[in-house]
Amino acid sequence: MSAGPWQLVGGSVQGPGKPSNQDAFDAGGSGGSGSPVILAVADGHGSAAHPRSAVGARIAVRQFVRLVGELMDTARSVELPEATLLRRLMSSAQHDLPRRLAAEWRREVLDHWQRQPGEAAGPEERLLLYGTTLLGAVLTPQLFAAWQLGDGELTVVDDDGSVSQPLAPERARLGDETESLGEAHAWRSVRVHWAPIVAPGRGPRLVALSTDGLSKSFAEPDGITRFVGGLDEHLREQGLEQVRAVLSGWLGEAARHSGDDATLAAAWRNPLGTEQPGRPDESVLEESG
């Protein structure tokens, strides 16, 4: 395992007046050989119909990190030409991972229900109690891939400074309606971004995953892309530690405006090289519910 070029920053702030933070996130790895960067954020639906969604969000993040980690371990362990490996990985990423994520989430949620039973009747009703979105990404020296179910934003700053949202749905959804891991056949709604990195400097330099508590805090529709563009600028001009120090304040401000939990997990490729193995600031991680 080698130190990689990516550094991580992330945090989650509970929305004002909410009984608990129903978002969850994780960020780990360095992007070096044997240490893929894996980012995930999940937004438990939080309304009265989904009283266990905070648990559902944590399970979604945990299962995503586990399954993507296993996929990358498998890719590393098999002895195949790189060309064949990429094809296999693409098939797994687009077809298998969404199905397995939905199935494993369902399995763990029903296990949780067994340990802490409530009043819901059938398995489908029980799953809805835990309803959550999921947005996740993986970065290796050869690959950038991301998966999304439901709302939230994947915002990417490319090496040339252009900002894009490759998983943005073709049509905006109305109000707070969103797709959910709690729905039957949830895997069918998973959107996948697949972007092999063919040469150094050809891939993204900042990958940011956020829940809609952050994007809803902006008055303008492009607020989130401008925010991530500004984050990239801050990182380059002021460095990672400075951004880590102020991130919880930014998220708190966003949560105050949106009235919702606000969560961000991001990976930044430092053009000056590796500063330190990256995990988000622990004090910010503690707020992640």
Binding site: P81, E82, A83, L86, P196, V198, A199
Partner: peptide
């Protein structure tokens, strides 16, 4: 083709 796939065989 990606560089890894741009082989003489391909």
């Amino acid at each position: 083709y990606y560089p890894a796939c741009a082989t003489a065989e391909q």
